[in-house]
Computed example of a mutant assay.
Amino acid sequence: MLYTPDQTAAFSTYSLRYLQTTLADHVLTVTLNRPEKKNALNPTLINELAFSLTYAHHEKDVWLIVLAAAGDTFCAGMDLKSLSNGEVEPTTVPEPAEPVKLGELMAGLHKPCIGRIQGPVYAGGFLLVGGCTHVVAAESATFSLPEVKRGLFPFQVMASLLEIMPARTVLDLCLRARTLSASEAHQLGLVTEFVKKEDLDAAVSQLVTDLKKYSPAAMQAGLRAYQQLKAIPRAEQQAYLHEQFRQIQQTADAKEGMAAFLEKRPPNWLGE
């Protein structure tokens, strides 16, 4: 883990330079806020993302995350200029325990994460989109991997997309730098839902409402198991999942869910 629970416990006291965050009713909204650079990911923004999402992972009051962006572009990918000239800014959050890998950061969140995509997504921005459990996009949003045009290759994005799409589809996107419309991204499974831009907030809000009806503890256990399954030999997976089901039955949410079912009332989730 990039940060310990003790480090992220003071999250609310930090002033972030390129992120806006709000926590309300168990929903942490994290907004990329570098619109003048099309929310390109420089070292400071990457560390702020790592700190914020690790806080979300550790904090029991956070049941789900909405990942959004200011301006007309969701994310232009890595800030190649800042990376090439070794740009250094004053730190805004503690240094992570190791270099941040966005794909691993998103995979380790273990909580539902909704991507609110209001504009184009380029290059490394796919790591954020691919790591969300749900993606709601404006129908005008586009998705492109232009790395080969610059003599580069989207190695980490390729790995992330292979979790979502067939291999040949992923390779074609990487090799031809083709731009996808929101409709095409939906057909390929990258986008969960696409709507008119003016309906974007309502669609995200409805998805938040839907997810909050159900046990946070159950969803977190399921997402954690989903990630851990990848490292477990197939012959051992059912035994692992059986043990996970045995453990989840002992949680407060499971006991509350069964009681609510028998008493024919809505459950009052604790997230435990």
Rank of each mutant, 00 (worst) to 15 (best):
A97F: 08
A97K: 12
A97W: 04
E98H: 13
E98C: 11
E98T: 13
E98D: 12
P99L: 03
V100L: 07
V100N: 06
V100E: 07
V100S: 07
K101L: 13
K101D: 14
K101I: 14
K101S: 12
K101A: 13
L102D: 01
L102E: 05
L102S: 04
G103A: 11
G103P: 00
G103S: 10
G103C: 01
G103L: 12
E104C: 01
E104P: 00
L105V: 01
L105M: 11
L105P: 02
L105N: 01
L105A: 04
L105Y: 00
M106I: 04
M106G: 02
M106E: 02
A107S: 14
A107C: 10
A107R: 15
A107T: 12
G108M: 00
G108F: 02
G108K: 00
L109N: 07
L109A: 09
L109V: 08
H110T: 11
H110M: 07
H110N: 14
H110D: 12
H110W: 11
K111W: 05
K111E: 05
K111V: 03
K111R: 12
P112W: 05
P112S: 09
P112L: 07
P112Q: 08
P112T: 08
P112H: 07
C113G: 03
C113Y: 01
C113I: 10
C113T: 12
I114N: 01
I114S: 00
I114L: 06
I114F: 04
I114P: 00
I114M: 04
G115Q: 02
G115S: 09
R116Q: 15
R116M: 15
R116T: 08
R116F: 08
R116A: 15
I117M: 07
I117S: 06
I117P: 01
Q118P: 05
Q118C: 14
Q118E: 13
Q118R: 15
G119N: 09
G119D: 09
G119A: 10
P120C: 12
P120H: 13
P120T: 13
P120N: 14
V121T: 08
V121G: 00
V121Y: 00
V121A: 02
V121R: 05
V121H: 00
Y122M: 15
Y122G: 10
A123S: 15
A123W: 08
A123H: 10
A123R: 03
G124A: 13
G124R: 06
G125C: 08
G125Q: 04
F126P: 00
F126V: 05
F126T: 01
F126E: 00
F126R: 01
L127D: 09
L127Q: 11
L128H: 09
L128I: 13
L128N: 10
L128A: 09
